[in-house]
């Protein structure tokens, strides 16, 4: 059998760079990183095309700061208390972004016919997931900006540069368990169910975790219950990073334990979802 050169046009050339991959070979890490950036970019574009979603996300913590913290002279003029208040609401902003982006967002995406199509592309689940995480982080940081601005302009909250840098890292770390919780919800529930579940989880956790009202104002029983919650543990670690006031020794183990539990739930939900989504 002979072939004429013109038959080697486009498709033949296309096959060459990927000739005969072995059955189980994973994509090279560079390819995965590139794909993750690709997914992150287009997910970002998709989200900002509906600006109200972004603005709403930025607005709520900022408004809470403006109405509940700024008018309280005793808090606003006390640098440590004001900074802690910024930290608390910052924790809330991050938690809410994580739960909404990954809980409600993931379950909504799963219902789009585009989602199974994306899963037939030559990319594993990794890049899409990484893109989601990058986006969640970007929007969470966006949500923190107005909050920080208000704290800086209207209260005596202040954070030295070095502490600020550490705090940003701490925020990213404490966000992780909530990101996983969001995914567990997003991958196990339909979008109609996910939205109310996210709200039911978010507000009690936020309140009992001392994100709206400082834990110092809690009655004793609530305070001890609170220290076992991931929101409280995250809050304490973040406030420690911002102000230097010691977090309880239990904070880190509590947060890690919840993180492990949520990770297991997320993995379970994701695996289960693969087989049953198409019923």
């Amino acid at each position: 059998m002979t072939t004429t050169p013109d038959q080697h046009t486009r498709p033949a050339g296309a096959a060459e760079p990927v000739a005969a991959p072995s059955a189980r070979a994973a994509l090279p890490p560079v390819a995965n990183l590139r794909l993750a950036l690709l997914h992150a970019r287009y997910q970002f574009l998709e989200t900002i095309r509906v600006p109200i979603a972004v603005i709403g996300n930025m607005l709520f913590p900022a408004l809470a700061m403006f109405f509940f913290v700024v008018p309280q002279e005793s808090v606003a003029s006390n640098p440590v208390a004001a900074t802690a208040a910024v930290g608390q609401l910052g924790m809330f902003a991050v938690m809410s972004t994580c739960l909404f982006t990954y809980g409600a967002g993931v379950s909504e995406d799963r219902q789009q016919p585009f989602d199974p199509f994306l899963r037939t592309l030559p990319a594993g689940a990794g890049p899409r997931m990484a893109g989601r995480v990058a986006n969640g982080a970007a929007f969470a940081l966006l949500g923190l900006l107005p909050l920080a601005l208000i704290g800086w302009l209207f209260t005596d909250a202040s954070v030295p540069g070095a502490r600020l840098a550490v705090s940003v890292l701490v925020i990213a770390a404490v966000a992780l368990p909530f990101l996983l919780l969001g995914m567990a919800i997003g991958y196990s529930l339909s979008s109609k169910a996910a939205l109310p579940v996210v709200q039911v989880v978010l507000f009690p956790l936020a309140f009992a975790g001392g994100l709206f009202m400082p834990p110092e104002a809690f009655p004793g029983w609530l305070d001890s219950l609170s220290t076992a919650l991931p929101s409280r543990a995250g809050r304490d670690l973040l406030v420690q990073a911002l102000t230097g006031s010691e977090a309880p020794a239990t904070s880190l183990p509590v947060l890690v334990a919840w993180g492990v539990l949520f990770a297991a739930l997320a993995v379970w939900a994701y695996r289960r979802d693969e087989g049953r989504r198409f019923r």
């Binding site: 296309a14 990927v18 991959p21 072995s22 070979a25 994973a26 994509l27 592309l121 030559p122 594993g124």
Partner: peptide
């Protein structure tokens, strides 16, 4: 189910 198999799909 492996991504590399799907490069030409």
């Amino acid at each position: 189910r492996s991504a590399t198999s799907r490069v030409r799909l």
